[in-house]
Design a protein around this nucleic acid. Structure first.
Length: 565
RNA sequence: UGGGGAAUGGUGUAAUGGUAGCACGACUGACUCUGGAUCAGUUAGUCAAGGUUCGAAUCCUUGUUCCCCAGCCA
């Protein structure tokens, strides 16, 4: 049974201004009850979290109002586009959790129809072939404050225009020698309306149509037609296309074809990162990151490799809302959405990033106990697992201080703490090397506290994670931090650019880490919480055991330390 | 100096002429076998000035600030 399209918001969330328009249209039956959106990426790069906002908007609206959303590649410029991006984009959209069913389209599939529409416009006297060079075209266009002037080729006869346009298509002219232009108004205050170019000559092989075409449609001409052919109802795009809407409307009106409504919203900006394809490409090209899927990148594939979940990204996209003015979302909000999801879904596991050896002096030499550990306290159905305990353990170097400051609750000489799911232990001795570095701790354990509870009810200030030294697995862990040191990376000294704001400590590689044995057969992209440390994700490179830190846990102690400095 | 948009706590957003609310962050406190999670609380806002109205974030006027547009890119 299909849900009736009442125009009511059926998920109990507040309507943003776009959903409001959609709901109103449903109410007035403007599109005979239909809602049909599309996500139209150009296959010239990888998708990033800004695209996720658009994907969630378009697919989300379709879902919410019982409509449809197409995936359409806007492949009108063969010089910039590559087939490899198409597969990557499809994978990313799918991974985010959206389904275009059988509605995968390409602008290039419409080239023939667009050509015929162009002929129709020529015959109506609304388009002409122009012989001006790119440079001359610019000069004739005028400026923001001065009107342009008519091209000398503007008044060619319809017959001549048809003939020339056919020759353009047939490959008779070199690149850049002629264009097809709409005949609108060279004095129009909106520069986009000053006889915009509809077709340019490009003798370039297209990833999908190969050399079938040597004329390619410009965005303004093509996009509205793509939307119209697919009978899109709401064509949602970003703010910079607001100036193009009159042209979008003009083409569709001249042709008298199905006319979707274009609606513009503001792009996403995130603090401590950059979002433009150009800048991201520069980071990759200059080797400042390891690739598009570097876990520090805001690309979908980067976030995936970092350990982000699709649900976290989707939730973030609904929480940030939709608006018509530029804003910068605090990356802390993204991280909040991340932790919120990961907390509920990630199995807990123990790992020691900077191992410190601990000997339990009163524990039998060869004894090994298998202790029960809870997999996820937020999800009882996740069950429990066994973790081995023995005389030689590792704890975190940061969890011990010889002379602890105020508010340091962890292990210190003479102090008793709990080893999670294991025993209460008390530090009795500290061994150091000749340089005074701590090499080993000696402790005693209380056998009565097995499992971590004291029968006499005594309390300890803190609980530490730990690993049995002989059972622990070696692993490499990569700690990531914000890519940029500045909230706004573009806020750079005058003679420098955003790259001067790169965070030199955005990646820290720890090669001597230990993880619990249950991680032996972890699969790439496996997500875990390393107890007390943060969320980590098995890296996709399979050679060694490598984990990427997705995000730290909220850390009150770190905050206190920071304040004390 | 042309045209098109937009302004609500530190940040992101709601309020569609009728109590300025929510979330993030920050800060308290409670609880806790993760200094996590959870729970309770505090903090802080309508760009400005006029006007209409019983009543204005919302309507009107003027001003200020910010964004976009002079690709044969999208």
């Amino acid at each position: 049974m299909t849900k009736p399209n009442t125009g009511q918001n059926n998920k109990g969330q507040k309507l943003d201004f776009i959903r409001q328009i959609v709901a109103d249209d449903l109410k007035t039956n403007k599109w005979s009850g239909r809602v049909h959106t599309r996500f139209p990426p150009e296959p010239n790069g990888y998708l990033h979290i800004g695209h996720a906002k658009s994907i969630c908007l378009n697919f989300g609206i379709a879902d919410q109002f019982s409509g449809l959303c197409n995936l359409r590649f806007d492949d009108t410029n063969p010089i910039k586009e590559e087939a490899e991006y198409i597969e990557a984009i499809k994978e990313d959209v799918r991974w985010l959790g959206f389904d275009w069913a059988d509605r995968l389209y390409y602008a290039s599939d419409y080239f023939q129809q667009m050509y015929e529409y162009a002929l129709q416009l020529i015959k109506a006297g609304r388009a002409y072939v122009c012989d001006l060079t790119p440079d001359q075209t610019r000069q004739y266009r005028g400026t923001l404050t001065k009107p342009g002037k008519d091209s000398p080729y503007r008044s060619r006869s319809i017959e001549e225009n048809i003939d020339l346009f056919e020759q353009m298509k047939a490959g008779k002219f070199p690149d850049g020698s002629r264009t097809l232009r709409a005949k609108i108004d060279m004095a129009h205050p909106n520069l986009n309306m000053r006889d915009p170019v509809m077709y340019r000559i490009l003798h370039a092989a297209h990833p999908r149509t190969a050399d079938a075409w040597c004329i390619y449609p410009m965005y303004d001409w093509a996009h509205g037609l793509e939307d119209s052919i697919e009978e899109i109802t709401h064509s949602i795009c970003t703010l910079e296309f607001e100036n193009h809407r009159p042209l979008y409307d003009w083409f569709l009106d001249q042709l008298g074809v199905f006319h979707p409504q274009q609606i513009e919203f503001a792009r996403l900006n995130l603090s401590y990162t950059v979002m433009s394809k150009r800048k991201l490409l520069q980071l990759v090209a200059d080797g400042l990151v390891t690739g598009w899927d570097d876990p520090r990148m805001p690309t979908i594939c980067g976030l995936r490799r970092r350990g982000y979940s699709p649900a976290a990204i989707r939730n973030f996209c609904t929480v940030i809302g939709v608006n018509k003015f530029n804003s910068t979302v605090d990356i802390a909000l993204l991280e909040h959405c991340l932790r919120e999801d990961l907390n509920k879904t990630s199995p807990r596991v123990m790992a020691v990033l900077k191992p410190l050896k601990v000997i339990i002096d009163n524990y039998p030499e060869d004894k090994v106990e298998q202790l029960d550990a809870v997999n996820n306290p937020e999800d009882p159905s996740a069950g429990t697992r066994k973790v081995p305990f023995s005389k030689e353990l590792y704890i975190e170097q940061d969890d011990f201080m010889e002379s602890p400051p105020k508010k340091f609750y962890r292990l210190a000489p003479g102090r008793e703490v709990r080893l999670r799911y294991a025993y209460f232990v008390t530090c009795t001795d500290v061994t150091k090397d000749s340089n005074g570095n701590i090499t080993e701790l000696h402790c005693t354990y209380d056998p009565a506290t097995r499992g971590g509870d004291a029968p006499d009810g005594r309390k300890v200030k803190s609980t530490l994670h730990w690993l049995s030294a002989p059972h622990a697995l070696k692993a490499e862990v990569r700690l990531y931090d914000h890519l940029f040191i500045n909230e706004n990376p573009d806020d750079a000294p005058e003679d420098k650019d955003f790259k001067s704001n790169l965070n030199p400590d955005s990646l820290q590689i720890l090669t001597d880490c230990r993880v619990e044995p249950s991680l032996a057969d972890t699969k790439p992209l496996g997500r875990y919480q390393f107890e007390r440390l943060g969320y980590f994700c098995t890296d996709s490179s399979k050679d060694n055991l490598i984990f990427n830190r997705t995000v730290t846990l909220r850390d009150t102690w770190a905050k206190i330390q920071k304040k004390q400095k």
